[in-house]
Nucleic acid binder design. Structure first.
Lengths: 335, 335
DNA sequence: TGGAGATCGTGAAACGTTTCATTCACGAGT
DNA sequence: ACTCGTGAATGAAACGTTTCACGATCTCCA
């Protein structure tokens, strides 16, 4: 089908080894031979067959990245960070989207292993994955993203969600709020539970009773619609809460809409704090106060850890990196 | 390093050919041999080396997808549609994000060609790409996504932006608006220009003078911030326009924020129509009327066209598919 | 009993690279 | 005149599969 290195060699009147050298070690071949070969290459439209190259080389220069959900700006930024570092270090990134489905996750792990990637960056759907363990046992390093390994068996990079909850709680309490709604997804998710822990801790630290001050509104899904629906009845009644903390920005937007449509002013009648500081947070009708995570940094660090492990499999020591989130104050809490 | 088919064969006491058959044509091998081989496989933790397989097979079962910007929900949905069809037809999708940089686009085209993908789906950054032409000339089919080929040399799938502009214009005119601001990105972009053409056409169709009715506000970038900044002075003055049409939803959100912060009520004082119908449009403080494009459908159709071309390179005839967008009415125009 | 099928399994070739030991050519140094 | 060294190119082996023509073994029936 497409021309091979052999065709190029023939046309240039050299051996295949020389053509290969032109491709991979240009300095080893004399000026004019190189020119002849290069012109043969472009005349024939030769494109290297990476399967053959990789088969022979035995090792690839690529890493896999499996994210939970490409629609989520968080993971998009993580991917950006990963690509940046990979680029610098000469690795290619194979991007996979598990879409929160275990079967997809497993399929991608299989594909990546068949492709002999050097390592894998992954936000696993479940805390422990047999498929992932098997991969690691066979010698492909993995780094967990936005998760921690309960057994400290591999590197991981995450953000401290308890601190995030505390930042939000302290901010609201400092503004005088004494009745705070916490809109959250399933508390079975570590992230949701940790943020609540932080919120309560901040409330307690201010000498208030968490039981009395914090009301938890737990929903199944974490989108704007569900938060809007959950918030409406609690706001319509002219009720007590003066503040809402939401487990992500989408939910915060939902609460904001509920406030607007029930005639409550933000932040005068209701202060709102979101989480993630997605792009839209700053551009909401009332710009949202939110908790920002160092997303790109997460990706960069994860990639660095992975490459470090690939390059020094023996001396490598696993690390659990934990970043601190940061509070971004905007109009929704009175700026 | 990792065990090969040969190790498996040895352990199972069969030939390599038989192991290969177990992997690829299980029906050709007897029940018990198959069982022996399978247990050898799992005992050794054998994972097929896809480089070798592909090298020998000569052809891969994968297609490339190069999108402009993974952060954009539009492309995310397109990707979803592509994956769905590819899945059904047994193809793997290699996802690439050119991030609007020509060098990245070219690098990915190179990588995909080296991997011998069967075909490429791409939203090219520039109308014509030499690298892409070369790829096609060498026999890798390509389908354009959200773009059209000026020379009708390959398949393409896009949406009619003129119709989108017309829908928005007709809707606003029907609601009595006689002074409409059009917030847009560079009119050099076909999409932006087409939407304006449609808007003017609708205005003219209602017997109004487009020159007088439509005021164009052209910005360099198409995000919420820029639209907000451009809108503020034009709204603060208690000025004439009663409606805004925005070239995308992000800009519409920016205009909405400008309206809220200058005390204009939406839709009473200012009606707003966005474009794309992104997820957030429905969840904005005032849910946005918007123009919806059949995004997943675009991805599905593009994938089908590509696979069709891969499977029947000879009988294949290029098609330029053009979908019609649809108006989604919500509160921001008085629902 | 022999022969025709059918059913399974074998073994070697081939895919397109990279690598590396080897050869070649040619000056320089003694 | 000879070795030595150096820079350049060669050619064959190897990477791990898949494929395919060919045996080997069994079953069935005349």
């Amino acid at each position: 089908m497409s021309p091979s290195i052999k065709d190029v060699a023939e046309r240039a009147g050299v051996s295949v080894g020389t053509v290969s050298n032109v491709l991979n070690h240009p300095e080893r071949v004399a000026e004019n031979t190189r020119a002849t070969v290069l012109s043969a290459i472009s005349a024939l439209g030769f494109v290297r067959n990476s399967s053959a190259a990789q088969l022979r080389a035995g090792t690839s220069r690529s890493i896999g990245l499996i994210v939970l959900d490409m629609a989520n700006p968080f993971f998009h930024d993580v991917a950006r960070g990963v690509e940046k570092i990979a680029d610098e270090l000469g690795y290619a990134v194979v991007l996979c989207n598990s879409d929160d489905e275990v079967t997809r996750e497993n399929r991608y792990l299989q594909v990546l292993e068949e492709q002999r990637v050097r390592g894998v960056l992954i936000t696993p759907i479940e805390v422990s994955s047999d498929r992932l363990d098997a991969l690691r046992r066979r010698g492909t390093p993995a780094v967990l993203v936005d998760r921690h390994d309960p057994r400290v068996n591999c590197c991981s990079v995450a953000v401290d969600d308890v601190v995030g909850g505390e930042l939000a709680g302290a901010h609201l309490v400092a503004h005088g709020h004494r009745k705070i709604l916490y809109f959250t997804g399933p508390l079975a998710l570590r992230q949701c539970a940790d943020r609540l822990t932080g919120l309560r801790r901040a409330v307690a630290a201010a000498g208030l009773d968490p039981e009395e001050t914090v009301e938890v509104v737990e929903g199944r899904v974490m989108n704007a619609r569900s938060a809007h629906d959950a918030a409406r009845p609690r706001l319509a009644a002219g009720a007590v809460p003066t503040a809402a903390f939401c487990a992500n920005d989408l939910m915060a937007l939902g609460v904001l809409r509920a406030a607007v449509s029930t005639g409550r002013r933000v932040p005068e009648d209701l202060a709102i704090v979101g989480y993630d500081d997605i792009e839209f947070a700053a551009d909401a009708a009332v710009p949202l106060t939110s908790i920002r995570q160092p997303t790109q940094q997460i990706g960069r660090t994860a990639a660095q850890l992975l490459v470090e492990e690939c390059d020094n499999p023996d001396t490598h020591a696993h690390q659990q990196v934990m970043f601190k989130p940061e509070l971004v104050v905007r109009d929704s809490t009175g700026g």
